[in-house]
Simulated assay, not measured.
Amino acid sequence: MARSSTLRNLAWLWLAATIAVLVIGFRQAIFLAPMEETMGNLQRIFYYHLAHAILSLVFPYINVAASLAYLYWRHRDPLKALSADALAVASAEVTVLYAGLCLVTGMLWGKPAWGIWWTWDARLTTELILWLLYVSYLLLRRFSPTGQTGVLSAVLAVFAAVDVPIVFMSIHWWRTQHPAPVFGPDGGGIDPGMVPAVLWNLAGWAMWGLLLIGFRFALERRRQLAEQEAALVALEASLETPQ
């Protein structure tokens, strides 16, 4: 009971800190960051698009790490394996959310900037494939045969994670319409006044994503424990001597 109360208090503190960081990020992005010369206020979508684009390539590694842990522990320690599986499904759902928001904010930006909602550009296409892979992952978990869900989804998670470096490197490997990176040795750079908005929003949405993963993990563990309890009750009933 004490441990549960402590975790609940930590969750509330994390939520409060997350909202505070997101509010600061919003203020930086909408009111304080300088206006871009060519795109004007439209460019402010960038602070949200970039954060979700980066994090949509980070959360899949939580998913694949948890999936590999599940495969390792499923015979050695089934209880640890169940926890790893719960983390895998939680991170997959958040990956779908963040990759979807990345695509949506990209289209909202692309329509005024390029004149089209969508183009089969290498960066956009590989990101769409990433989103579809994790949607497939969730569908597989829902409709796979009973008893095979964890193994099949873990194998798909390993396959899906291969697309992450392809998305990241797509603008280096192919000529794309997508803008070049703004950070790193090959980056085009941004106005220094825009950097705080980038960093605050990246931190805020990372904290929000981790909060969602933690919340979804707790729900999944509760579901697993309920299934175990129901199975135990059914087993005990089947072993009772008929009167």
Rank of each mutant, 00 (worst) to 15 (best):
M1N: 12
A2G: 01
R3N: 08
S5D: 13
N9H: 13
W12A: 15
W12R: 12
W12S: 09
L15A: 14
I19F: 11
I19D: 01
I24L: 14
F26L: 15
Q28W: 14
I30P: 00
I30V: 15
M35N: 06
M35C: 05
E37I: 11
M39A: 12
M39W: 13
L42M: 14
L42Y: 04
R44S: 04
R44M: 03
F46C: 07
Y47K: 10
Y47T: 06
Y48H: 08
H49D: 04
H49Q: 11
I54H: 10
I54L: 15
V58H: 00
P60A: 03
N63D: 09
N63H: 00
A65P: 01
A66W: 05
A69K: 03
Y72E: 04
R74H: 13
D77S: 10
D77R: 04
D77F: 01
P78K: 02
A81S: 07
L82A: 15
L87Q: 13
L87T: 03
V89F: 11
S91L: 08
A92G: 12
A92L: 01
T95P: 00
Y98R: 11
A99S: 15
A99H: 06
A99Y: 09
L101R: 05
L103M: 10
T105I: 07
M107C: 09
W109A: 03
K111V: 07
K111G: 02
P112M: 10
W114I: 01
W114M: 07
I116D: 13
R123C: 02
E127Y: 03
W131H: 08
L132I: 11
L133C: 13
V135N: 04
L138F: 05
L140P: 06
F143W: 10
P145V: 00
A154N: 06
V155K: 15
A157K: 02
V158T: 04
A160F: 00
A161K: 02
V162P: 01
V164G: 05
P165W: 04
F168A: 13
F168R: 13
M169D: 11
M169I: 03
I171T: 11
H172Q: 09
W173P: 04
W174L: 06
R175E: 14
T176R: 07
Q177M: 15
H178L: 06
V182F: 15
G184Q: 00
P185F: 02
G187V: 13
G188I: 11
G188S: 11
I190H: 04
D191C: 08
P192G: 05
G193N: 05
G193P: 00
V195H: 12
V195N: 06
V198A: 02
L199I: 13
N201A: 02
N201H: 10
A203W: 13
G204M: 11
G209Y: 06
L210I: 06
L210G: 06
L212K: 08
I213D: 04
F217V: 01
F217I: 00
A218P: 00
A218Y: 02
R223L: 14
L225W: 10
E227N: 05
A230N: 07
V233F: 07
V233Q: 13
A234M: 12
E236S: 11
